[in-house]
């Protein structure tokens, strides 16, 4: 099989959480374009029905299953319904998450409820869906888990405690998955998106068109799709516990402001 043929996902079944909009929708559509049948999950039925409709127009099967990923029973139901209706689960994309109330507060102002909701939304959700999916993948003889983390999972942020903590934990959760289930042919990897256009208003103001990003622009939703397909495909069978960072070079720097480019001539003698 050539390298391009190995990217094909014909007959595979994927579950994408947070598939109602933005990056989740882009990844769900990319998986479908590559041949997968895709189950779309999120809280809003209307939004995931729209994604599922787009997937069906690509000629793939799709289900929209309204799911609150902070609820373990609903995560189990999502995976079990997928296996009942689609026959299997090959690919799990844990994408649901995001900023929750209190995400931008200093430590001393964060309430217990805010902390728990942020951790549940961004970290526990990954655990709940993996716990439900892994027994099926082990039984099937393999699978792919793709967890979406963040640049804030690799670096800190001022007044950013809940989200930074949860997203860093997602990366290390992924590494332990990689070590634990390698023998079952399950690969677990992370995608780290940088700044993309549908951030909240405060972030968009801060980005000012992406001029702080080395490449000078924010990402496009559709740029996330190929990375997701790669990780879901046989081309990445030897990738495990790894991170693909799509951030226009942001995390390659970080010791100085973007654009700083000093010139110092070689000393003579």
């Amino acid at each position: 099989m050539s390298v391009l043929e190995k990217l094909g996902l014909d007959g595979k079944v994927a579950v994408v959480t947070g598939a109602g909009r933005g990056l989740g929708r882009a990844m769900a559509l990319a998986l479908a374009e590559a041949g997968a049948n895709v189950v779309c999950a999120a809280r809003s039925r209307e939004q995931i029905e729209a994604t599922a409709h787009q997937i069906r127009q690509l000629g793939r099967r799709s289900l929209a299953i309204p799911t609150d990923v902070t609820n373990p029973q609903q995560c189990t139901r999502l995976i079990d319904t997928t296996v009942e209706q689609m026959g299997r689960i090959d690919i799990l994309v844990n994408n649901a998450g995001g900023a929750t109330p209190g995400y931008d507060k200093p430590v001393e102002q964060i309430t217990d409820e805010e902390w728990r909701l942020g951790i549940d939304t961004n970290l526990s959700s990954v655990f709940y869906c993996c716990r439900a999916a892994i027994p099926h993948m082990v039984r099937q003889g393999g699978g792919k888990i793709i967890n979406v983390s963040s640049g804030y999972g690799l670096r800190g942020g001022r007044n950013n405690f809940i989200y930074c903590s949860a997203k860093a934990a997602v990366i290390n959760f992924t590494r332990s998955l990689a070590l634990t289930y390698a023998q079952h042919n399950i690969q677990a990897n992370c995608i780290v998106p940088g700044f993309f256009p549908h951030e909240n208003e405060a972030v968009i103001r801060y980005l000012r068109g992406g001029q702080f990003i080395p490449v000078g622009r924010v990402g496009k939703d559709e740029e996330l799709g190929p990375a997701c397909v790669l990780l879901a495909s046989a081309l990445a069978d030897h990738m495990n516990g790894a991170i693909i960072i799509l951030d226009g070079g942001g995390l390659a720097g970080g010791q100085a402001p973007t654009g700083l480019a000093p010139r110092i001539p070689l000393a003579e003698g």
Binding site: S176, A182, G194, V215, A227, N240, G241, I244, I245
Partner: peptide
């Protein structure tokens, strides 16, 4: 590929999980 235009300055590890230890 052109599809990876937003990725720069990074390493993609293909190590079967070795670095996760």
């Amino acid at each position: 590929s052109e599809a990876a235009g937003f990725i720069t300055g990074h390493v993609i590890w293909v190590d079967g999980g070795a670095l996760s230890h």
